[in-house]
């Protein structure tokens, strides 16, 4: 079935507009979340290490688990950014 030419053009235009609109909103959600998630990953990683040091092992391991889990937290933050950029690259295709 043939669409009239003008209608076909209009349809593709509205599709593109719709796609751009979707991109703006989901970008807004992703980016407004990413900075906070990065910072919180570091804090939560350190908090878990601190809890293990002071509450679970009673201070015998004291600075070490905190430092190790701080490293895990930083890595978790970077992993979040990596996943995000991969998802965005996939969406752009």
């Amino acid at each position: 079935m043939h669409l009239p030419r003008r209608r076909a053009i209009k349809l593709t235009q509205s599709n593109r507009e719709r796609k751009e609109e979707k991109g703006i909103l989901s970008d807004l959600a992703n980016y407004s979340q990413s900075g906070m998630t990065f910072a919180l990953s570091v804090v939560i990683g350190f908090g878990m290490g601190w809890y293990l040091d002071n509450k679970v092992f009673g201070g015998r391991t004291t600075p070490w688990l905190s430092f190790i889990f701080l490293g895990f937290g930083i890595l978790a933050g970077f992993k979040h950014l990596w996943d995000l950029s991969q998802r965005i690259a996939k969406d752009d295709d």
């Binding site: 979340q33 998630t37 889990f69 978790a76 979040h80």
Partner: peptide, 18 residues
């Protein structure tokens, strides 16, 4: 698994705190 655990808690906190 540790990284994902931290990431999941970060999700929980950041979504509510924002």
């Amino acid at each position: 698994i540790i990284l994902e655990l931290i990431g999941n808690f970060a999700r929980l906190v950041s979504l509510s705190m924002r």
